[in-house]
Design a protein around this nucleic acid. Structure first.
Lengths: 207, 207
DNA sequence: CACATATTGTGAAATATTTCACAAATAATA
DNA sequence: TATTATTTGTGAAATATTTCACAATATGTG
């Protein structure tokens, strides 16, 4: 089992390699990859070494085979079922985000408790109240939940999702969720991202 | 100058403290804060110690004064001007995201080169072609750019933004940007977030 | 084939980050 | 006021992560 930081980097190597493949590049050295990502070649090699011996000394890594290996390790050869919880503006944007389908993530359900939204159709999916969660998760093989609910609702929604057996959550609500150890939450807190930039701005101003 | 990881945590402490303040809690110990965030009390204390001595032994931290200190350090007492580059679905969702204004981030310009979007009004802001970037950045005091442009356009847009003097970028395009050392980029790559979860799913399946 | 050149894979060394542990400081109690 | 309970702030120790450095391996050339 790889640690979180390594996986975060593998995911990025994969993207960079797919970019290079699109440009018809066949081979890349650890130095080349490191240069694109502003990292050290040693780190790239150590990270990639977790995949087994895939590089050729004197030559580098074969991009196609490395992408294949990364896709396997990262679980990107499969299609995963995604449920969207919260049919608001942000939910809609994510639902239409092209990057998801491309990597095998398929929205299969949309939940919202707002009666003005229930029953509406987004593409071929109907917005459903969250009371139907358990059966939908089972029937449509949902693996991942993307939470775009208001902050006050987030913990309760997370409880329901995990009770329904979901273990992988992507949370856009600005709340730290309290979940069991075997549940993974990734936080995409957009305001916090800006606040990090704000610190830099402020620090520049003070200099 | 604090390191990136510390700032990332300060930003989260600030959010947690504001939550507690909303619930009328007046004091919090490092242990309490750590518990909410699943971290160690020692780390909370060490992080907060960068603000100077703000805690009271035997009691903990006064939430109001700590929030004030964090807001100052993080630059959240000021209002920052934000430009949105890319008037698509995701851009629209971010534009309406309530968390930004609350913390003093104000959208003051929207750029898009798509002629069908130029001239449209979002609230009281008109979508403008990116050719007007330099003058708008100056006139409307833009400090931060939020990039929701397609991946193929991202580097070129980043070049223009930095040429216009912007040094803080929040990038939603799935591309590693090549920028000068004095420019900060934060990446919000939504597909990568799902791919991290995918690794966990896959690993569970293999067990 | 011998030699030169390039780059991997990986223990060991160097850095960075986190936790420990405890003296100092505060408050509550008698 | 003395005593007890807490909890901070912080050097030192423990962990974790990254980089170094080099033997091993692949390719190209004459």
């Amino acid at each position: 089992m790889l640690n979180r930081h390594t996986v975060e980097r593998l995911v990025i190597y994969n993207r960079v390699l797919k970019d290079l493949a699109k440009k018809n590049v066949k081979w890349a050295t650890s130095e080349k990859i490191a240069e694109i990502l502003f990292r050290s070649p040693a780190q790239v090699r150590k990270d990639l070494s977790f995949l087994g011996k895939k590089g050729k000394p004197g030559v580098g890594y074969n991009i196609r085979s490395l992408i294949g290996e990364l896709d396997s390790t990262l679980g990107l050869r499969k299609t995963w079922g995604v449920a969207l919880i919260g049919a608001g503006n942000l939910g809609r944007a994510l639902f239409h985000y092209p990057g998801f389908k491309r990597e095998g993530f398929e929205f299969r359900a949309i939940f919202d408790n707002n009666s003005s939204k229930i029953g509406r159709r987004w593409g071929d999916i109907t917005v459903t109240p969250i009371t139907s969660l358990n059966s939908v998760v089972r029937k449509r093989k949902i693996n991942i939940a993307v939470m775009t609910v208001p902050d006050y609702a987030a913990q309760e929604v997370a409880d329901k999702l995990t009770a329904a057996g979901l273990k992988e959550l992507l949370n856009f609500a600005p709340v730290t969720l309290n979940v069991a150890d075997n549940v993974n939450v990734r936080y995409a807190d957009l305001a916090l991202e800006l606040e990090n930039l704000s610190y830099n701005l402020n620090h520049r101003a003070l200099k």
